[in-house]
Design a binder for these strands. Structure first.
Length: 296
DNA sequence: CTTACGGCCTGGGTGC
DNA sequence: TGCACCCAGGCCGTAA
């Protein structure tokens, strides 16, 4: 479920309630297979105080201070990823417990942070200070990248633009929904090679990606099925989707029928008229030419 | 280097 | 009503 706008919405919600709070107790459910080293969660978190909540692509980081032991400066972070169906909510401790809730962090104000995840594709682990570089994906943030950086990322590898946008080592935070929506807005076919995009197309895509992500954040993300924010509220950007899950419906721009194909291993929605397919090159002829050149 | 595919899990929708 | 099958906002490992 959660891509950059959804994670950003959760982070902003947590920022209103978590900083300054102390974690007093940790309870884990029986299904803890998705947690990396569950005992470390139970051992390290109690007694820590929340300093900040940040986002890194689709990862969410809760920065923690161990200030009880007199020695300040020992910093750890709780790293979380929502996978497909993860939810993080902060509720009064006595609130009814939703099914598939696997982690409870009791806070010093009578509330608790709960992690709920039907499919358990999410992740949770303790991050020691200095581990961030090696654990977090190195892709650039699509909201902060300049047009130059954006172009460099797109031309860095020979892959389809859809695969590039979704690769967390190239761009961090984009997923299936926002990739398709951005490509539709920029009028670029998902199978185009990133390296083949013209300067104008790169510029259009850069603007489309930022525009879509910013608008989605304003509308608090897309709630297609499971996503809710830290207050348990659904987002509204699903009402603005132009192609995602609209197979067979009419393109809002030209009226053509939206198609669905598998690209980069994922369901991909696009308008076959607005988003012109890449020209198929004749590989045989090209190879022969190269071989001939090499022989010379 | 790239893509395709299966697997991880659970649940919802569809068609017979 | 039951059941098989396909699908799902992510990501990893393997094979080709």
């Amino acid at each position: 479920m959660p891509e950059l706008p959804e994670v950003e919405t959760v982070v902003r919600g947590l920022r209103l309630v978590l900083p300054g709070r102390r974690i007093v107790r940790v309870r884990l459910g029986a299904k803890r297979d998705f947690i990396d080293d569950p005992p470390s969660i139970e051992r390290e978190l109690p007694g820590t105080r929340v300093k900040a909540v940040t986002r890194h692509g689709k990862f969410l980081l809760v920065d923690l201070d161990r200030d009880g032991s007199g020695k300040n400066g020992e910093k750890i972070a709780l790293l979380m990823h929502l996978g497909m169906t993860g939810q993080i909510t902060v509720v009064p401790a006595e609130a009814p417990v939703a099914p598939h809730t696997h982690v409870f962090l009791e806070l010093d104000d009578g509330r608790e942070l709960r992690y709920t995840d039907i499919r358990r594709f999410g992740q949770m682990r303790i991050l020691a200070d200095g581990q961030r570089e090696s654990v977090l994906p190195p892709g650039i943030d699509p909201l902060q990248a300049s047009e130059e950086e954006f172009k460099r990322a797109i031309t860095s590898r020979r892959a389809r633009i859809k695969a590039l946008l979704m690769d967390q080592n190239v761009f961090r935070g984009m997923g299936n929904i926002y990739t398709d929506e951005s490509l539709w807005r920029a009028k670029i076919h998902p199978k185009r090679l990133g390296a083949n995009l013209s300067d104008g197309e790169v510029r259009r895509l850069h603007r489309a990606v930022r525009g879509i992500l910013e608008e989605a954040i304003r509308l608090r993300g897309s709630s297609v099925s499971d996503y809710v924010d830290s207050d348990g509220e659904r987002g509204e950007f699903q009402l603005r989707h132009r192609v995602y899950q609209r197979e067979g419906a009419k393109c809002f721009r030209c009226g053509s029928v939206i198609r669905r194909e598998i690209v980069a291993g994922r369901s991909t929605f696009f308008c076959p008229h607005c988003q012109a397919a890449p020209r198929v090159r004749r590989k045989k002829a090209i190879r022969t030419t190269k071989r001939a050149r090499r022989r010379v």
